[in-house]
Design a protein around this nucleic acid. Structure first.
Lengths: 237, 237
DNA sequence: GTCTATATACGGATAGAC
DNA sequence: GTCTATCCGTATATAGAC
């Protein structure tokens, strides 16, 4: 599966995404007309991600957000109860969307080697579709109030757990030769994360998302494969 | 070389570090007595790193810094001309110290395989010694004013360049089998970076810096080694 | 060399008009 | 549903005492 195919298999059009956000938050939003809410939520989130990813969420003032969205300060507060609340909505949306889509991608795949490949590619492709969200989450999750921080850490560990379980499964079946499946999962996560955290770098070098995903898969092949299987092969993975 | 040995080879005692900072900045510091400057710079940097790494540099107020250092607000301004200036000093110190020490570690090593191993280990070990600095830099470099941001990006690319040059050298001599040396350098950098960015994770799992460094080296072995050299070996690297 | 006190601006948030 | 006007706390930075 390449990036284009991935995009087709998921319904992650902007409209759909913001409708989901609307449904998840409509009880705490004062405005009631669906169309209005979706339009303005879309403006607010796009603006918030844009400004925060440039100078940090803390440094983004409500006045900045007002200017960028075209809504007044007062108007903004009809959609969230405060800056803290906006932050939480942004993080929560990213988390749930990710879980939802990755789960769906992995569900039909059972073979460990294929599962690992799909998990890596789907993760990278999804981070490409939702790049501002992924970048935002990885940058802001560290500076949260203790309660929310634990949630963020838990989410990070869950992703790793997903990789680790697949590796363990492959090891049990004698497909992978891995010393430490948790550390292996960690470095896979690190490589995946580099794509959306350092995107300016890859853009500058004109590395496409397909190239990057294939490269990561081949790296993982290199150190997950049973070496005994012989030399120079394309391998099991 | 393990971590303990690394620590012995470099003179990175706190006193030494803060004396270097003093020498690099003494012309723009109003206070003139060396002993006083070093003592207070040490307090200021330690406090600034501690607070910023918890809640972000932007969110750290001068009042926070005053409380944590024991110096008054007014007193602080004898050491830097403003918050922006303090940020620049922090980033610059981290950069120059890193360049200085990594350069020294690599200088005597000529064999590509050994150089790559040393570059990886030294980088990880150094990031352990200077953990708050490395973490701070990677978190704050993104939210800089355009001018400083370019410096930060250049520094990132330089590190990668260092890895890439070694890999190229090894490839030329037929020691490494690498498809794309720049992408390979990128993922090595990503793995190295994970150590100091996600340190809470590794601390929780009781993974030592020696374990992590060895693991990364073995990963790199896995996908840099010429596969034709045979199976299950410890390899050239 | 360091402190206290203060100038001045900007932050988030809300009340009430339309 | 959205805007304008405004409250009030807190921010950075400095002036001048000690």
């Amino acid at each position: 599966m390449n990036y284009q195919e991935f995009q087709k298999t998921i319904d992650i059009s902007k409209d759909h995404l913001y409708r989901e956000i609307y449904l998840a938050n409509r009880d705490q939003i004062q405005v009631k007309k669906e169309k209005t809410v979706i339009r303005n939520l879309s403006r607010i989130f796009n603006a918030a991600l844009k400004i925060s990813n440039e100078k940090g969420f803390q440094a983004m003032s409500m006045r900045d957000l007002s200017r960028e969205t075209g809504l007044s300060m007062g108007g903004l507060y009809a959609y969230f109860s405060g800056k803290e609340d906006l932050l939480e909505m942004l993080l929560r949306t990213g988390r749930t969307t990710t879980q939802h889509i990755l789960g769906a991608q992995l569900k039909p795949v059972t073979d460990p080697a294929a599962r690992l490949r799909v998990a890596i590619r789907a993760h990278i492709f999804l981070s490409e579709v939702l790049q501002p969200w992924f970048y935002f989450s990885s940058m802001q999750a560290r500076h949260l109030a203790p309660g929310h921080r634990e949630e963020a850490k838990a989410s990070e560990l869950e992703t790793e757990r997903l990789f680790m379980d697949i590796i363990e499964q492959g090891r049990t079946r004698g497909l992978f030769a891995v010393e430490d499946s948790l550390l292996t999962a960690s470095v896979i996560k690190a490589m995946v994360q580099d794509w959306y955290v350092k995107r300016w770098k890859y853009a500058k070098r004109k590395v496409s998302v397909d190239q990057y995903a294939s490269f990561v898969v081949s790296c993982v092949e290199g150190f997950c494969l049973r070496r005994e299987r012989g030399a120079g092969s394309t391998g099991t993975l």
